[in-house]
């Protein structure tokens, strides 16, 4: 709170001004007073500050089911569950903010970890769902990357009753396959056998659209990220079996996701690491995934 006495002094001093000026003057006076104490800190903080404030500010993506999304106006999803569990281990509450994605994850790290968006809202103490990638980390020295908690992988989803032997993608020279535009899976399909599959590829922008096409049998298969496919099928009570045919030349078939925090908050990262180890050992971490129908895949030790 600002000092009320100081505030009152300012008001009385300004009464002698023209009344039309009153509002502007008071505005400035109150701003000066209130800058001293009011308001919330929204920059990434070391562990001591987080513990002292009693709240861990966690930022993850809006519209990124099953990891984070809004459900009835409230944050929900695997990342949200994990964030709450970590906060509990640290003895604080989790303040969870879901935010739109930028053009690239690099932009998101800038907005959510070290600089904050230009339109306000501030950074978080920790950002979830960040790729663990050496080149990516080198490009973003303002943030620390770690606390890996899951391994993503590209899989082929087909109908559980599928009888055709799909040991190679040649099968899609004669049948439709769905894939999300511009992903590594898309690139693999589009360039497979010099473009032999192009006419049978059905592109979607969001995994939700792809799963709908799959359930409608507009496509016979989906190539995508296992966690997304599992959770979307789980939510719509659809079923699929997951295959892992050889994907010659695919540039990335698996990757690991973890967290990012500000370069000057390393001790917070260690504390969260310790919390994650506990959650993993107790099985709570895996349960966060199972709740959304996702098979937990622990990240490999580097």
């Amino acid at each position: 709170m600002g000092d009320p006495d100081l505030s009152r002094v300012e008001v009385h001093a300004s009464v002698t001004y023209a009344s039309v000026m009153m509002r502007a003057v008071l505005r400035i006076a109150t701003l000066i007073v209130c800058c001293s104490g009011l308001g919330l800190s929204a920059s990434a903080r070391p562990l001591d500050e987080v513990v002292a404030s009693g709240s861990l500010r966690v930022i993850s993506y809006l519209d990124n089911a099953p990891f984070s999304f809004e459900e009835n106006g409230k944050p929900a999803g695997i990342d949200v569950e994990i964030a709450r569990a970590i906060a509990k281990e640290l003895g604080v509450t989790a303040e969870i903010v879901l935010r739109m994605q930028g053009e690239k994850a690099d932009d998101d790290v800038r907005a959510n970890v070290w600089r904050g968006p230009l339109t306000g809202g501030g950074t978080g103490d920790i950002m979830m769902n960040v790729p663990m990638d050496r080149e990516f980390a080198l490009r973003n020295p303002e943030a620390v990357f770690g606390n890996a908690y899951f391994q993503e992988r590209v899989v082929l989803a087909v109908d559980p009753g599928e009888r055709t032997d799909i040991s190679s993608f040649d099968a899609f020279k004669t049948r439709k396959i769905g894939v999300q535009l511009a992903t590594v899976a898309d690139y693999f399909l589009m360039t497979y056998d010099d473009g032999a599959l192009i006419e049978n590829i059905s592109h979607h922008l969001k995994p939700e659209q792809g799963v709908q096409e799959f359930l409608n049998k507009d496509v016979s298969a989906l190539l995508g990220i296992q966690s997304k496919l599992e959770s979307l099928l789980h939510a719509s009570k659809g079923r699929a079996k997951f295959l892992n045919p050889d994907m010659p030349g695919i540039v990335r078939k698996t990757w690991v996701i973890g967290m990012a925090w500000k370069e000057n908050s390393r001790d917070l990262g260690y504390a969260i690491d310790a919390a994650l180890v506990k959650l993993s050992a107790s099985g709570d971490l895996a349960r966060c995934f199972e709740k959304y129908g996702v098979s937990y895949v622990s990240p490999p030790l580097n």
Binding site: M1, G2, P4, C34, L40, A42, E70, G73, V97, G121
Partner: peptide, 21 residues
């Protein structure tokens, strides 16, 4: 009153979802 009500940010400030509600 002690003061500060007008110049404290709205509670909705940290809720990025104010625009949805």
């Amino acid at each position: 009153a002690a003061g500060g009500g007008c110049s404290a940010p709205a509670m909705a400030r940290n809720e990025e979802s104010w625009s949805t509600t």
